[in-house]
């Protein structure tokens, strides 16, 4: 057990936690009864994926991707791969940050849409529990 933890889990501990968070979110998305809980699970699922993307860009011993001083001119083109790589190793990979930055803000806008749909459902059926909702929908007359 301890050996398994040290060899398999510890090097990828972050990834394991993201997978667990994703499982928690997915489980609540399928199994929870309340619609607001489902939306919360969706948000947790989303943050787990964003966490995964951001951790792809982590470099050991690197600083934040904001340049403190002007990069040396000799680095020049990417063709000088050795010097360019050595300079770039000092900064975290900015590409996942850019992609996920917009994903978070779009995520809150779509969260608003989901909550608005919840309010409309509540106005129509006076409940947010899934089983009651299904019962009330089945009880509706056919021509509605």
């Amino acid at each position: 057990m301890v050996e398994f933890f040290l060899n398999t889990v510890k090097p990828n501990f972050n990834y394991w936690v993201y997978v667990i968070l994703m499982m928690v979110g997915l489980w609540s998305l399928i199994a929870k009864n309340n619609l607001i809980k489902k939306i919360m699970g969706l948000a947790i699922f989303q943050t787990a994926i964003i966490l995964f993307y951001v951790s792809l860009g982590v470099k050991d011993g690197a600083t934040i991707p904001v340049l403190e001083q002007v990069p040396v001119e000799a680095a020049g083109t990417v063709a000088a791969a050795s010097t360019a790589g050595a300079f770039a190793d000092g900064f975290a990979n900015p590409v996942p940050h850019v992609l996920m930055l917009t994903a978070i803000v779009v995520g809150v806008a779509t969260l608003g849409v989901a909550l608005a749909l919840c309010q409309t459902i509540f106005k129509e059926f006076d409940t947010l529990e899934e089983d009651e909702l299904l019962r009330k929908i089945k009880a509706l007359p056919d021509d509605v």
């Binding site: 951001v54 951790s55 934040i64 975290a92 996942p96 930055l101 995520g107």
Partner: peptide, 19 residues
Amino acid sequence: EMGAVDVAFTEATVGAGIS
């Protein structure tokens, strides 16, 4: 803590505030 300061800033305003 991972060095993604811009993403952290966005999450602090969006995740802990607006949502």
